[in-house]
Amino acid sequence: MAASKLDLLQSVLEAAGGLERFNQVEWIQVVNDVDGLFWAIKGYPGRQTVSAYVDTKQPRVIFYNLGGRLDDPHLRWIWTPKYLSIERPDGSVVLSREDPFKHFEGHTLHTPWDDLDLLYFRGYAMWNYLMTPFYFTWPGIRTKEVEEHTENGQTWRVLEVTYPDDFATHCRVQRFYYDERYQLRRLDYASEVIQGSPVAHYVYDEKKVDGIMFPMLRRALNMKNGVGVGRSMVLINFHKISLKGPQVRSNL
């Protein structure tokens, strides 16, 4: 007998390390390289090494070298869904923006970005990726299992996730594909901030960090006939992921 729809989400959570363990984590510290064709289109070419702290209790990410045109390594780049700021170590604000999502109205793939556009996109993307699948249990987020998907001889179960209208993510409805071990293999979306076409985003090289599983390599491709094709639009390679407790909060 096939497992129920509820069983898929529960199995995914358990395979990722369990909700109880994840709830003990306050911050996720990461260091990763970012590359791919997409960044040159937006005016940020070349591979960049990014470090960040991801807040697990609320949508917030603090970057310490985002790779923007403001290249001062001492700046803090702070993302939240409703307010962005780039700050000096003393807390003085260099740049800021309220309601940043509205700034993308009329944008297309080829609209150039400024540093705050870059901060918004990388902030919500980083937060979503590191919080998957645990934030699927948050209020207002709905999940359901849909038809299985077969690709390269593998059959994956598919979890469709629907987000509230004001939730900072790629788009309102996304699909997450899981293998027989309940490990994430792919997610699909079309980024609203660029009015983008569908993307197939593949993940690889899972690593267990203090009991929680994370993909260490991510590759986003344009989608054709239901699969990803061509060169990497976005390539993310994580060199370091570590979990932090509440003592980190006062030091950021």
Rank of each mutant, 00 (worst) to 15 (best):
E26R: 14
F22V: 08
L37K: 15
T49D: 04
E26T: 15
V30D: 03
R47W: 12
I28S: 04
R47P: 13
S51M: 05
L37W: 10
K42D: 07
R47A: 12
N23E: 06
Q48G: 06
Y44C: 03
N23H: 04
D35L: 06
D35R: 02
E26S: 15
N32L: 15
V31F: 01
A52D: 03
V34N: 01
V25L: 05
Q29R: 12
F22H: 13
V30Y: 00
V30N: 02
I28A: 03
Q24K: 14
D35Q: 05
V50T: 05
Q29H: 12
A40Q: 12
Q29F: 08
W39N: 12
V34M: 11
A40S: 13
G46D: 07
V54T: 10
Y44V: 05
V30M: 03
K42E: 06
E26N: 13
N32H: 14
Q24T: 13
I28G: 09
Q48D: 11
V34R: 11
P45W: 12
A40M: 02
T49Q: 09
Q24R: 12
K42Q: 11
Y53E: 11
Y53N: 13
I28T: 12
Y44N: 03
Q48E: 08
V25R: 10
V31K: 09
F22R: 08
V25H: 13
Q29N: 11
G46H: 07
V30H: 02
D35A: 12
R47S: 15
G46M: 07
V54A: 06
I28Y: 06
S51F: 03
Q24M: 07
E26Y: 14
W39R: 11
W39Y: 15
N32E: 09
P45C: 04
W39E: 03
V34P: 00
W27A: 02
W27Q: 11
